[in-house]
Each structure stands twice: as C-alpha cells, then as structure tokens.
Nucleic acid binder design. Structure first.
Lengths: 308, 308
DNA sequence: AAAAATGATTGACTCAGACAACTAATTGAT
DNA sequence: ATCAATTAGTTGTCTGAGTCAATCATTTTT
C-alpha cells in the first residue's frame, strides 16, 4: 500500500538528517558538558521547575541514567533539588543561577551552530523554504495541537499557492485533470481583476502557521442582483475535522449578510461529501442538480442556496 | 542578520526530528545487532565493496570503533576481508552471503518501521507533502549534485506552483507586491485559455525531482504576425548558476524557430540582472526601454528581440 | 489494610565515542 | 633517491550512554 519510493525517500532523509544533527552536536564537545547533560539543562531552562520523571519522558531517557546525570549536575552546582512539596516521592529540581548562566551559554552556542551551519549559507528565499518545510514536517508527524485558527487576507504568493494546492488535492483525491487547474486559475484571476463593488472578500484560514484552507465571496456571476456566490472553499486534509470549513463558510455567510446581499449561492459537486455537509450545517439548501463532464470525470453539479 | 525566529524553528525541528529518529531506531533493539553495526552493514550492502576508511567517513564514525565493530562482524561471519588489491594499506571488505541476508532483513525492518510510523498514518496527499518537504530540505542543505536537468510539460498543480513561486520570489527579492501575482495569475490563465495555433509551449525545468524553473512561448500579444514572445522565465534561487535559465531560453528559442516564428521578443525589467545576461548570451538585443511604475516599484521595462 | 503503581536511586554490564600510540604502506618534496 | 608527512588500520584506555534488574519510600487503588 505504501509506495516503496516514498519509504526510500523517507529513509534517505532520516540518514541525511542524522548526519546533520550529528554535525550540529559535534560543536558541543567544546563545552564541559556531555550531550545528554546539555539536553537536561535545556529541558530545565525551558520548563522551569520539573521532576526527574518529567524530563525522562520528554527526553526519552532512562531514569537511571537521568538520575546519575542529575547528581553530576548537582555536584557541579548547576541544578538544585528544591524542597519536596506535595508528592514526597518526587523531588522538584530547578536550575541554580550558575545553571541558568550555563544554559544561556549552551543555548547561544546551539543557536549559533544552527544559524551558521544551516541558515546562513542560504538566501532569504531558500531560508523561507527550509523553515517552511520543517514546520510542515513537524505538523504532519506530530499530534494536532489545539491551536487557534486565524482567518486573514491572503499574503503575496498565496493565490498561486491556493491554485496549486486545490489542483493537486482534487487531482489526487478525485482524479480531476489539468482542466480543473486551468479553470481555477481563471477564477482567481477574475477575482483579483473584479471591481470591489459589489463587495467581495477572500479568506485564508491559518493554523499553526500553515494555510489550512480558503474561500471567497463574490457577486454571483449569472445570478440576479443581490445574490452572492461562495467559491473555492477547500480545507487541507491535514487540518480536516477541526472546524476549518465551518468557520470559513460562517465567515463568508456573515460577510455576505453584512454586505447587503439577500442570498448566497454556491456550486459544488456531489462527490465532495464533506463540503456538502458543511453547507448543510450552515443552512444552505440544494436548489438544482446538473450532470456534466468536466475535469476528465463524470460529475453531478449541485447548486446550493441560502436566503439571508 | 539571521532571523531568531528562523533559528528557533530550525532548532525546534532538530529536537523534534531527533525524537523521531530515536523512535525509529528503537525498533532495532530487537535485532541481534547494535545500531552502529546495523549502520555499517547497511553501508556495505549499499556500496558493495568498500574499505574501512570509506565507511568511517560516510558514517562519521571513529576509525578505532569501526575497526572493532568490523572485527566483531567478521567473527559473526557477516563480512569478510577481501584480498588486498592495489593499495596494500587498506583492506577491502564486503558482505558474505549471510551478511547480505542479514542486511536484507535489517533493511526490511527499517522500511517497515519508517512506513508504519511515518507514512501509513498519512493520506496520500499528506504523504506527498511529507516526502516533498524532506526532499526539499535535503536539496537545500546538501551540496548540489551533478544531476541531469529535465525539461518537461507542467504537471497538474504546477501552474499554481509557478504562480506561487514567482510571486513569492520577486516579492522577497525585489519587493514587488500582490499586483505582480495578480498579473501573472492572469498571464497563466490566458496561456491556458489560448488557442494552440499559432504554436505555444510551456516548459518546466526539473532538477533532482524539484521544479527548478520555467518559461513559456506564445504568439506576441501586441506584435506583428510571425513574432513569438518568451514569457515568465524564472529560475529557483536554489538552482541558479547551473545553466537552468540558459537551457530554458535555448529550448524556447529553438521551439520558436522550428514553429515558424520569424522573431522572438520578451519584456523584462532591468533590475533582473541575471535574466538579462541570459538573454544576451542567447543573442537577444535590447530594442526599447520604458520607465513605468508597477508592482509597487519604479521599474525600467526592457524589450529584447531576437531575429530567428 | 493489603496490593499495585510510581519516583528515585543504585549496581552491573555492554557498547559508543573520543583520544593517543603504534605499525605498515604510500605519497610528496626537495 | 631519500626523508618527512600522510593515510589505513589496529589496539589500549577511559568516560559516559544505554539497558536491565533490584531496592526503597511513598502514593494510589481496591
């Protein structure tokens, strides 16, 4: 089921990045502290006061080893056991002032190493790519966090990004071909070119610094006066099931209402089930269905309408 | 100079991915071999016959340690010293048949671990993102390889990608605003919509699996009959200085010539110095200059022409 | 009140990682 | 052609990482 080429690429990256991390860690040999000690110090400087068990879990470290490392650090005067409070099994530990100084020094060294080795050789454009790719990998591989969803205007480059993502998404999920990309390129070009009266608006949903979805509202192209059209709603698979689509539609409907439109309609395909349920929940009702052949597929187009 | 937020993001990713790699390596404890042994076995299975020094360099491993690991593996009958050939200081080593069997087993285990832990939880769209991001990071951080440049037609999603990349690139490098993205969205939409006579063509340059640049040729919009226009030439910063632009322009010019155009022209801005030198080398001559204010900047537009 | 779970420490052992010393072969410089 | 420097590989030594099991005190569960 999983593409062997993907697996090979992932493993190649793991080997590659193992070397990168090793390279960065090498610089730490100049310090008086071993790598694990440095990690423990970093953990404590980040979290303030914790217990050994806490650190052992987050660093995935043997409790015994951790115990020894900590007693070494206590001997060096970098960390101190605080008076036991509450649960008398665990001893809260924290950095001493000297410990904090060491932590700051280690942090600065790590920052410098990361900057010099990884970021400085790149130009700003590449740097943006690097950081973006890293953020994306982290987001893909870690449990979704409960972060706040932001709706905002698109930034420079994001119109192209939206075209790219939707073309790719529906190509992979629905098998639609390049005609769809051609169509939406035109739709976005027209959006940008159109007058701002009657009112139009486009929203990008941002989650964890990534584009999570998008939608826009324009005056309906073939509708009567006073009808708005909701277009190009999409949600990134990565962020599905977190209410992004609902928020986007709600925002769009509320914008249409405030802007004086009397109805809002949209065109969608019945194969897009999750979108349909979002529209239903928002109060849209199915007005018309129409079979057509587009984007290399047999589709059932649906017109949904919501009276405002 | 380097953005502290970028550094923080990179370091966060390093910590994150250290954990991921640790997670994958944990599965290897079930085997009879230590992690370093497994790495050595993998290296040998990949490269066929090598020497200790080779392996020590690629795995960034102490020669002494490597020597001991290898003698351990020789004792286990997994690797064998081959007769010395040429340089008598180094002993070529290779896997025995049993060694190859073990290597295959370890490889299968690693594949399975990577697939189960990283890829399987993702849907195909996310998987593509993950692999793409990994490839990009590798490409950004490793020395450029001497790989072959491929010119091909754009794939689904790449029109949007080209818009995205160029809008972002010129925004960061030249400070151009969203007007530029609006313009090029329209240009690509028009390209897609236009008739295929007179001939047009679009090329994507692919390098190491990544889009490295692009260009297209269309009949000149306001020119006389028989004039082709070269448009939207761009090269990813990552792949600059490797002849991508030259190849794209050469291909475009040759296409225009073969298709019966008598001249080919283009419009560019004098602030785009590297593009200009590509045009000059390809034989274009400056025909006209024109100051204008576009994309939020004062620009000097240039028309270049090449008689075919 | 007894049993199970948890936090922390300690002992024992293997292997990783760094470094120095050494042999043997090869390369470079004069 | 010779001597010094370099390179491949081995071995000894030491510190610390990593794993496992045992132990003790303290909670939590039942």
């Amino acid at each position: 089921m999983t593409d062997p080429a993907d697996v090979a690429q992932v493993r190649a990256f793991n080997r590659f990045y193992t070397r990168i991390i090793g390279l960065l860690d090498e610089g730490m040999h100049k310090t008086m502290h071993s790598l694990s000690e440095a990690r423990v110090i970093y953990e404590l400087s980040k979290d303030g006061v914790t217990t050994g068990a806490q650190v052992a879990v987050t660093l995935n470290m043997d409790r015994g080893q951790l115990s020894r490392i900590m007693s070494r650090l206590v001997d060096q005067g970098l960390i101190a056991n605080l008076p036991r409070s509450g649960d008398a099994r665990s001893t809260p530990v924290g950095l001493t002032p000297e410990g904090r100084a060491v932590a700051a020094r280690l942090n600065a060294m790590s920052d410098a190493a990361a900057a010099e080795t990884l970021l400085d050789p790149l130009d700003p454009f590449e740097r943006r790519d690097l950081v973006g790719s890293m953020r994306r990998i982290s987001a893909l591989l870690s449990e979704p966090e409960d972060n706040t969803l932001v709706l905002r205007a698109p930034r420079v480059g994001e119109i192209g990004w939206l075209i790219h993502r939707q073309a790719l998404l529906y190509h992979l999920e629905q098998g639609w071909n390049g005609e769809f990309e051609t169509l939406i390129t035109r739709i976005y070009a027209d959006y940008e070119a159109s007058s701002s009266t009657p009112p139009k608006h486009i929203w990008v949903a941002e989650f964890e610094g990534e584009v999570a979805g998008s939608v826009f509202v324009v005056p309906a192209e073939d509708g009567e006066e006073g009808t708005a059209q909701l277009r190009m709603l999409y949600v990134e698979p990565m962020f599905r099931g977190r209410g992004v689509g609902g928020r986007l539609v709600a925002e769009a409907v509320s914008f249409a209402r405030i802007s004086g439109y009397r109805r809002i309609m949209l065109w969608t395909q019945d194969c897009l089930a999750s979108a349909r349920s979002i529209y239903q929940k928002a109060g849209f009702v199915l007005a018309k269905e129409e079979r057509h052949h587009s984007f290399g597929a047999d589709l059932n187009g649906q017109y949904w309408v919501l009276e405002l």
